[in-house]
Design a protein around this nucleic acid. Structure first.
Lengths: 68, 68
DNA sequence: ATTTTATGTCAAGTATATTTTACATTTTTG
DNA sequence: CAAAAATGTAAAATATACTTGACATAAAAT
């Protein structure tokens, strides 16, 4: 699964640290999500989408082929 | 977070087992989600929503107050 | 009434998400 | 250029999602 967190964050011109505290997680978590190291939980995905005023499916892109 | 998996499933008149295999998880997982024992992962949420032809936010209801 | 099918519970195990801490590198700013 | 701010890496610890298997009860079917 891909996401456009980094792009949305840069549009808003905020740092990883600001986003992290806005959605109540660690900066490490934001880094890992942006760099595709793992997937957000449903709650975190919701918080992030809400923060950017988007829907979950707008922020997280589910390319088919990943029913891993 | 709440969800209307059980309701959607009953509308479609399918068993937990059918849903489970359709989205490639265990029946246990479906039971636990329906009974609110834990939250789905983002990927599973997507699979389930897709299966029912809905968006994630239509199936999973994020009552605010749960930034636990 | 009894067999089958569907739903539920419990507990232990594995996998993955998130935290914490500490440090290295890159980018921005004065 | 030097200092500060932002981004990145790595590893160990904790939390939560998901699996497996075994068994109990409820609902539906014959």
């Amino acid at each position: 699964m891909k996401n456009c967190i980094k792009e949305l964050r840069k549009e808003k011109r905020i740092s990883q640290e600001e986003l992290a505290s806005a959605v109540a997680v660690t900066r490490q978590t934001i880094i890992s999500l942006e760099n595709g190291k793992y997937n957000a939980s449903l709650l975190l995905a919701h918080e992030i989408a809400k923060y950017f005023g988007k829907t979950i499916e707008e922020v997280f892109l589910f390319d088919e082929e990943e029913t891993n």
